[in-house]
Simulated assay, not measured.
Amino acid sequence: MNRPAYWAGAVALALALSVGGCGAPGESEDARTEDTMNQDEAATRVTEHIEGVVAALPEGAELEPRQGMNVAACDDPTDGGPRDRVTVSERLWIRGLPVEDNEANTDLLVAYWTDNGYEVVMDERPDNQSVTVRHTEDSFNVSLRVTDQGSLSLAASSPCVWPEGAPGS
Rank of each mutant, 00 (worst) to 15 (best):
S28W: 02
S28D: 01
E29P: 09
D30F: 12
R32L: 05
T33A: 12
T33K: 15
E34C: 00
D35F: 09
M37L: 14
N38E: 09
R45H: 06
V46N: 02
V46G: 01
T47A: 12
T47E: 14
E48K: 01
H49N: 08
G52M: 00
V53R: 05
V53K: 08
V53F: 02
V54L: 10
A56I: 02
P58I: 05
A61T: 02
E62H: 04
E62T: 10
E62M: 00
L63H: 01
L63Y: 00
E64N: 11
G68S: 12
M69S: 01
N70L: 11
V71L: 01
V71E: 00
D76L: 08
P77Y: 03
G80T: 06
P82E: 05
R83G: 15
D84I: 09
D84G: 14
R85Y: 01
R85L: 11
V86S: 04
T87R: 13
S89L: 09
S89V: 11
E90A: 09
E90Q: 09
R91K: 12
R91E: 14
R91W: 07
W93V: 09
R95E: 15
P98T: 06
P98N: 06
E100W: 10
D101Q: 09
T106P: 00
L109A: 05
A111T: 15
W113F: 11
W113N: 08
T114V: 11
T114D: 02
N116S: 02
N116A: 07
V121Q: 06
V121T: 10
V121F: 11
E124D: 14
N128S: 11
Q129P: 04
S130C: 08
S130H: 13
V131A: 00
V131L: 03
V131N: 03
V133P: 00
V133N: 06
H135S: 10
H135N: 14
T136A: 15
